[in-house]
Amino acid sequence: PTIVLKVSPEELKALEKAGVEIEKIEKNEDGELYITLTPEALKKAGFE
């Protein structure tokens, strides 16, 4: 199962800087950012 999270541009930068593997980055028509994370990326980021 993949996880989709709504993030701010600042959060996205912080995640990328931390080396979190982001599978997909999407922006909706309201300009909101959503990222898709794999279970492996979540484990690496410390989420179980």
Rank of each mutant, 00 (worst) to 15 (best):
2 T>M: 15
14 A>P: 00
8 S>K: 11
2 T>H: 14
24 K>E: 05
12 L>N: 00
43 K>L: 11
44 K>M: 08
25 I>M: 07
23 E>R: 08
47 F>A: 07
3 I>M: 11
28 N>K: 11
31 G>F: 02
45 A>E: 03
12 L>P: 00
25 I>S: 03
25 I>V: 09
43 K>Q: 09
29 E>S: 12
37 L>N: 00
18 A>C: 14
32 E>A: 13
29 E>A: 12
39 P>E: 15
19 G>W: 03
10 E>L: 15
40 E>R: 04
28 N>Y: 08
14 A>F: 14
28 N>E: 04
33 L>W: 10
28 N>V: 05
4 V>R: 12
48 E>Y: 03
38 T>G: 05
23 E>Q: 09
35 I>T: 01
25 I>P: 01
26 E>K: 04
21 E>F: 10
23 E>N: 09
1 P>A: 12
1 P>V: 12
3 I>A: 05
16 E>N: 12
3 I>C: 13
17 K>M: 12
28 N>G: 11
28 N>T: 11
6 K>V: 05
45 A>Q: 02
44 K>A: 08
3 I>Q: 07
13 K>M: 13
31 G>H: 03
5 L>A: 02
35 I>E: 00
46 G>C: 11
34 Y>F: 11
37 L>E: 00
6 K>H: 06
12 L>K: 02
36 T>I: 07
10 E>D: 12
3 I>Y: 12
18 A>Y: 12
13 K>R: 12
42 L>W: 15
46 G>L: 05
42 L>F: 15
29 E>M: 10
11 E>T: 15
6 K>D: 00
17 K>F: 11
2 T>Q: 10
3 I>S: 04
7 V>W: 01
1 P>S: 10
15 L>W: 13
16 E>D: 05
32 E>T: 15
34 Y>S: 05
5 L>N: 01
29 E>K: 12
12 L>C: 03
20 V>Y: 03
16 E>M: 14
30 D>M: 13
38 T>K: 05
38 T>C: 05
6 K>R: 14
34 Y>I: 09
15 L>A: 02
9 P>N: 06
13 K>P: 01
20 V>G: 01
46 G>E: 04
33 L>P: 01
32 E>W: 14
8 S>D: 03
21 E>Q: 08
38 T>P: 02
37 L>A: 09
18 A>T: 06
25 I>W: 07
41 A>P: 01
25 I>H: 02
40 E>W: 03
8 S>G: 07
10 E>M: 14
8 S>Q: 05
21 E>Y: 09
42 L>P: 02
6 K>F: 10
28 N>C: 11
43 K>N: 13
46 G>R: 06
30 D>R: 14
39 P>D: 12
17 K>R: 13
35 I>S: 00
14 A>T: 14
6 K>G: 02
45 A>K: 03
30 D>W: 14
47 F>V: 12
36 T>E: 06
36 T>Y: 14
15 L>E: 00
31 G>S: 04
4 V>T: 12
18 A>P: 00
27 K>V: 12
14 A>S: 09
35 I>F: 01
7 V>K: 01
23 E>L: 14
17 K>P: 00
5 L>P: 00
27 K>S: 12
23 E>I: 12
21 E>K: 05
2 T>P: 13
10 E>H: 10
24 K>N: 10
36 T>R: 07
5 L>S: 01
12 L>R: 01
23 E>K: 07
35 I>V: 12
